[in-house]
Design a protein around this nucleic acid. Structure first.
Length: 294
DNA sequence: TGCCCCCTGCAG
DNA sequence: CTGCAGGGGGCA
């Protein structure tokens, strides 16, 4: 899935477009994608029809859309989810000067489209998800904090409360894990996934295989900085598009052009010129420079 | 604290 | 054909 920077990119793009809009219809092409927390079908006609979008937020890799009537839509994009907003025909012409880009022309829905939200002005929000791991849920806004997956999350790495000491304390019961695996645990830090975990270890100068219990305080400080810097860079370049990720306008992100190690097996380290290596940690592809990381 | 699994599609 | 892919829940 999209990790924190990708979901943040979608959030920033979507909030400009759908806050204040009223939901007209919801078409569910893949019922499994859209379930309430009990796995029962949700009564959309009664529940969401006519509701106005009040706010959009992100927590870890989950995107939330608050609606009128104490309702919140939760989205998890998992590995291949996309949320693409297509303006209504009128807006669309004025927006791009009458020359539709491929992703904005009438190519939606596509084969992987699972759910379509239509707003009162005719614009649409498409939830595409090739692998069908992603989900959408409806919860009461006032009961958000009871959601188990939100309760289990560690600190938000780009918020004030995240310091190297809070990182050290939240990671304390992962001492025997490789550090790269540990920072991908959402209870340690919220929102770090496979790409930015490799990047954070590189920036910190730490070998991703190093056991958490072997890290000293200086390394925790560097790791803390590495997490923050890699995520910020991800947001700056509009996220990482390996295969699926696109922003709310259907456009790719370019972080991987600037990545130090991720996806660069047998390529040259941008810092020292030695070869980047790919290994497997916790079942996931992991990239590092043996010369820069110890 | 490690696997298996949920799926689909693409590269090798 | 096999293996692999931005995730993470459920299980022993």
């Amino acid at each position: 899935m999209p990790e924190l920077p990708e979901v943040e990119t979608i959030k920033l793009g979507l909030s400009k477009k759908i806050i204040g809009q009223k939901i007209k219809t919801i078409r569910i092409l893949n019922p499994k994608t859209f379930q309430d927390s009990d796995g029962k079908p949700f009564d959309f006609a009664q529940g969401l029809h006519g509701k106005v979008v009040l706010n959009i937020w992100r927590k870890a890799k989950v995107l939330g859309i608050d609606l009128e009537g104490n309702l919140t839509l939760l989205f998890h994009l998992k590995m291949s989810g996309q949320l693409i907003y297509i303006p209504s025909k009128t807006d669309h012409k004025s927006f791009i000067g009458g020359h539709p880009t491929p992703e904005m022309s009438g190519e939606m829905p596509v084969k992987s489209t699972r759910v379509i939200f239509e707003f009162d002005d005719g614009s649409k929000l498409y939830f595409n998800d090739q692998r069908k791991f992603g989900w959408i849920r409806v919860v009461k806004s006032s009961e958000l904090r009871d959601q188990s997956f939100l309760r289990k999350l560690g600190p938000e790495p780009l918020e004030k409360g995240f310091t190297w000491k809070t990182l050290k304390s939240s990671i304390v019961n992962h001492k025997s894990q490789p550090v790269k695996v540990a920072i991908m645990d959402q209870s340690v830090v919220a929102g770090v996934g496979n790409i930015y975990a490799s990047e954070a270890c590189f920036i910190a100068g730490i070998d991703p295989r190093t056991k958490v219990g072997e890290l000293n305080d200086l390394q925790f400080k560097k790791l803390h900085q590495g997490i923050i810097q890699s995520l910020k860079a991800g947001i700056k370049y509009g996220g990482s598009t390996k295969t699926h990720f696109v922003n709310a306008e259907g456009k790719k992100g370019y972080f991987l052009d600037y990545a130090f190690v991720y996806g660069r097996d047998q390529d040259i380290c941008k810092k020292c010129g030695n070869l980047i290596h790919k290994i497997k940690l916790g079942g996931r592809g992991t990239y590092f420079c043996a010369h820069c990381q110890h």
